[in-house]
């Protein structure tokens, strides 16, 4: 008898403005159901302090960064606590194109 395991992968797309840090435009993580914060912790582990500096400021998403889960800005969800399911797609984009410079 064969046992099939369904692997659920979160897909993360990076803006080209992050390419000099991530050296890729896309990655996948196997995390199961989790939160944006856990995904970011994992990405910081993978891409290092440069990535963290670019995305986070004192543990919060920086003013110039928009992070979307399935197209929804996490500022309209629950911020870093927004839930992420195993099959979700995350996009990290500069706010200059997607909007929202908070003062």
């Amino acid at each position: 008898m064969h046992v099939y395991k369904v692997i659920k992968m979160v897909k993360i797309r990076f803006s080209s403005a992050l390419s000099n840090v991530t050296h890729t435009r896309e990655t996948v993580l196997e995390l199961g159901d989790t939160t944006v914060k856990v995904v970011l912790d994992k990405l910081v582990e993978q891409y290092g302090a440069d990535f963290e500096r670019r995305i986070l400021d004192k543990g919060e998403i920086r003013r110039f960064v928009n992070l979307y889960v399935n197209g929804e800005d996490i500022r309209h969800l629950s911020g870093l606590d927004s839930p992420v399911k195993g099959t979700d797609e995350i996009s990290i984009l500069p706010a200059v194109s997607g909007g929202n410079f908070r003062g």
Binding site: A17, R62, F64, V65, P94, V96, S97
Partner: peptide, 11 residues
Amino acid sequence: QNTCYECFGPL
């Protein structure tokens, strides 16, 4: 290009 590669700020 519209975004700063150093800080993500607008150009």
